[in-house]
Nucleic acid binder design. Structure first.
Lengths: 248, 248
DNA sequence: CGAAATCTTGAGTATAATCAAAAACGGTGG
DNA sequence: CCACCGTTTTTGATTATACTCAAGATTTCG
C-alpha cells in the first residue's frame, strides 16, 4: 500500500523541513514519493547483514537498532534509530549491507525503492545534499560511540547514551517535561555499550542512587538534565542539530 | 601553490577510477580541481574539533588519524586515514567539526576549497555519488570499530585493526608480499583500540609469539594472512572494496 | 492466572588498567 | 662514527573494572 500521511506527520518531510525551507516543488515530490508501509512487531529483523536490498526503510514510529554479530556470536548494537531515521540509507550506494536492522519495539516503517530515491535525488540536488548530510550525521554518531565504548567507563558510558537518546527524541518531539518512553531493555543497552546485562543493571542502580535518572517501567525521567550531562561528559555538537531543535 | 600531479599519481583520481570509469570530462575537471599542497610533519593537528573549515584535506601520502578527546583528557582515535582518504570530507555538509584530524607520520596533504568541491559536485552527479559513497564507507568502518572496541577482546581486537589497515593499504598499493610500513606506535594503537599502551604491548607480544605477525621497526610482516584473518574474525565486506581491489 | 522475559542479587574470576622503572631505539650534533 | 637525548617499547607488581555463572524476584503479556 502507498503512504498517505498528513503532510505534517510524514517524519521524513518534517526532518527535511527542519534543515531548510522546502520549495513547494520539493515538498510535492516528497509527498508523492511511493512508500510501502508496514507494521513490524518487536525484535524482528527488517534487513540483514549480507542483504542486497533494492529499497531503504524509513522508521515512521517505534524504536529500532542497527547491529552486527561477531564470529563468537556476540551482538553489538551500533546505533539506535527513532522516528524519521532511515537506518539503511547507505544501501543506496553500498550494494551489500554490512549490518542488520532490527526493531526494538513494534514499529511502523515505510519502504522506499532505491530507484525512486535516485530519481528524487537526480531532480532535487538539495534533497540529495540533505540525505547525504543525514548519513554524515549517522557517521558522526558512530564516531561518538567509538569514543563512548572505547574510553568511557560505567556510569558515564551509560549516561552518555541516555543523553544522546533524549536529545534526539526531543528533536522529534518525543520528550515532554524531561520524561520519555524508552522501550529499550537493559540487555539491549548492554549490547549497545559493550557491557554485560548484569553490569548494565548495576550501573543503572548507581545512576538511580545518584538521582540522575528515574525509571518506572519503560518511562524514563531526568530530574536534573545538567547533572546528567555532566556525568556523561555530554556535548551534543556531534548530533549537528539545527538551532531551533537544539534544546540541549 | 597548485597541485601538479601526473594523472596516475593523483590519489583522488586513482580512487575514483577504481569505482567507475571516469569520462574525459570528469577526469579533466578533477585534474583542474584547485588543490593547495602542504607537507605537515608528524603529530600535528591538521584540523581541530570545533573548527568551521572552508576546505577539506586530501591525504596524498603518509598516515593520519581522526580522534576525539573525552572530558577527562583521554584520547580515542576513531579512524586511521591513508593515501587517497579525505578524513574531513563531512565538513562539506556539517558546519562544525566534531573530531580532530592529526598526522601520525609526516604527510603530504592537499587542501580543496568547499566551494570548488560544491561546484564539482553540481556539475558532475557521478562524482557527487562517489564522494557520498566514500563517506558511507567511512561510516561502515566506524560501525565496525564500534564492534571491535565493544565486543572483541585483546588479540582479536588488535588483529582486526591490523587486518583492516593491511587490506586498505593493499587497495592503494602500499603492501608488497605481505609486508608494509606501518609507522603507528603502540601508544597510538592503544588510543584506537581503547586499550592502555602497556596492554597493547602485551597483546603484540602474544601475536608475535603465535607467529601471526612479525615486526622490524615500523615494518610489519604477515606470515600467514588466513591465520591472522581467523584470529581477527575479519570479514572485509564492510570496506566495500570493488572486486579488482578486494584481494582480501 | 501462568509462562516468559526481564531485572536483580551474590560470589568468584578474568581481562585490562595503573604505576613505576628499565631497556631499546631513533635521530641529532659534535 | 659515536655519545646523548627523548621517545617508544618492555617488564613486573598491584589494583580495578567488568564478566561469568547461578539463582531468585519481579514484571509483562497473553
Amino acid at each position: 500500500m502507498q503512504a498517505s500521511f498528513h503532510p505534517d506527520y510524514n517524519p521524513l518531510i518534517r526532518k527535511l523541513e527542519s534543515i531548510f525551507k522546502l520549495t513547494d516543488d520539493e515538498r510535492q515530490a516528497l509527498q508523492n514519493l511511493p512508500m510501502q508501509m508496514a507494521t513490524i512487531k518487536e525484535d524482528q529483523d527488517i534487513v540483514r547483514e549480507g542483504d542486497r536490498p533494492s529499497r531503504s526503510c524509513l522508521i515512521v514510529s517505534g524504536f529500532a537498532c542497527a547491529y552486527k554479530m561477531t564470529a563468537h556470536g556476540k551482538r553489538q548494537i551500533v546505533s539506535f534509530t527513532i522516528a524519521g531515521d532511515i537506518p539503511d540509507l547507505q544501501s543506496l550506494h553500498l550494494k551489500v549491507l554490512d549490518s542488520s536492522v532490527s526493531t526494538i519495539s513494534r514499529c511502523s516503517v515505510g519502504f522506499i525503492a532505491h530507484e525512486d530515491l535516485r530519481a528524487l535525488c537526480e531532480r532535487y540536488p538539495r534533497i540529495t545534499a540533505a540525505f547525504w548530510r543525514e548519513t554524515l550525521i549517522d557517521a558522526a554518531i558512530f564516531r561518538e560511540w567509538v569514543v563512548n565504548v572505547g574510553r568511557r567507563e560505567g556510569s558515564s558510558r551509560m549516561a552518555h547514551i541516555l543523553c544522546e537518546l533524549i536529545v534526539r527524541l526531543k528533536a522529534v518531539g518525543l520528550v515532554e517535561d524531561d520524561v520519555c518512553d524508552l522501550p529499550i531493555t537493559q540487555g539491549e543497552f548492554a549490547d549497545a555499550l559493550g557491557f554485560s546485562p548484569v553490569h548494565v543493571n548495576r550501573v543503572f542502580q548507581q545512576l538511580r542512587a545518584e538521582g540522575l535518572i528515574l525509571t518506572q517501567g519503560t518511562r524514563l525521567t531526568i530530574p536534573d538534565w545538567d547533572r546528567l550531562k555532566m556525568a556523561a561528559e555530554f556535548d551534543p555538537t556531534y548530533l549537528h542539530l539545527v538551532q531551533e531543535n537544539a534544546a540541549a
